[in-house]
Design a binder for these strands. Structure first.
Lengths: 192, 192
DNA sequence: TCACTTTGTTAGTGAACACTAACAAAGATA
DNA sequence: TATCTTTGTTAGTGTTCACTAACAAAGTGA
């Protein structure tokens, strides 16, 4: 999909956004970081917007395994657990993503980018809500609480955990805290 | 605290960030929106960073009642309910805030602004965790789940709800959805 | 009336931005 | 060897940015 140079540009852009904020994501900064000239960048992306779109696509590609792994469990609570832990595993292995993608407002002024982010978020939300629903149908998950609320709590607390991790300078272990959060979440929603 | 003109500038800046993104928050755009010249702005704020700091301060001031109301309930679950609903009430009455403040990444490159946002978020989190703890001590809230996790779930799902509301173009009623989320949350955490 | 403060104006600064024109070197293909 | 494609270069474009210098009008207080 991406050439080697394109991948390098996308990763450099991600790194710059993570470390210095999107206001410092300039063609010059990307080019300098890589060690080529500005116009050389335009051989690989036609403009800056295409680079930003590629940053999101790259994130989506890296996150795919987290969604695919869902189908490997039969138990719904296990599916939820692997959804949470797999997300956190990927993010802690790619810490630059945390600041870039969990801050969708970065892309606020570009309609095309908002749409791309929104779709990604909604997709996760819907998949998770379906998992919760089937768990409720199987009597694994309590039914006195709506699947929408449960899915919101899971994704919301997951996102907030990553935000806290990112804003704290990553001082705590994301996966360890995530495991605790996940266990507590399971205790709350399991059917009695 | 703020003069009339300063308040107008802060509100205009908030509106621009909400509608057009922070990349379009320029001195010229603020000035044009108000109907004065660019240099006139500098009579009221010494530079752009001061305007951004004022935007956050203004948000904090508006949110204060939500924290003060906490002490008006004795019951911990009621405290949590009023925390959630009061936040959502203020945000739905000031919808520009939703996009501005729940996107802390907007301010990522300015250390001073990150700190200001981070403090605000941590303050809420700690207050809420204390409320949960006292609820656990009073046997109102179940104790098999850590107060940290519960506070994270509450704030996380609250933030995510606002994010969804904001990114969907505010197509649903924030307070109605919030009430549902709040009721479900109470069901999950109440002691048996 | 006269000085001072406040709040505005017009006209401009240098720096940074995304992006382009024109050209060069290197490798692949014929 | 000759040609074409790919990927780079230097030098530049016009635009926009935050911010400033210099000046003006209006209100305030003596």
């Amino acid at each position: 999909m991406f050439s080697e140079r394109q991948q390098q540009i996308v990763e450099t852009a991600t790194k710059i956004i993570a470390n210095r904020g999107i206001q410092n994501l300039t063609i010059k900064n990307i080019a300098t970081e890589i060690g080529i000239s500005e116009p050389a960048l335009y051989r690989h992306f036609s403009n800056k917007l295409e680079i930003l779109k590629a940053v999101i696509t790259n994130f989506q590609n890296k996150m795919k395994p987290a969604l695919e792994k869902l189908n490997k469990s039969i138990n719904s609570l296990n599916k939820i657990e692997s959804f949470i832990l797999e997300h956190l595993r990927i993010i802690s292995q790619n810490p630059d993503f945390a600041k870039v993608i969990f801050s969708e407002a970065n892309f606020q002024n570009e309609d095309e980018l908002i749409l791309k982010m929104n779709n990604m978020m909604n997709q996760s939300h819907k998949i998770l809500e379906t998992v919760v629903q089937s768990g409720q149908n199987n009597n694994e998950i309590r039914t006195d609480v709506s699947s929408l609320s449960i899915a919101r709590m899971i994704i919301g607390s997951l996102r907030f955990l990553v935000t806290q991790w990112s804003m704290s300078g990553m001082i705590f272990n994301l996966e360890t805290e995530g495991k605790q959060l996940c266990d507590d979440m399971k205790k709350l929603i399991v059917a009695k």
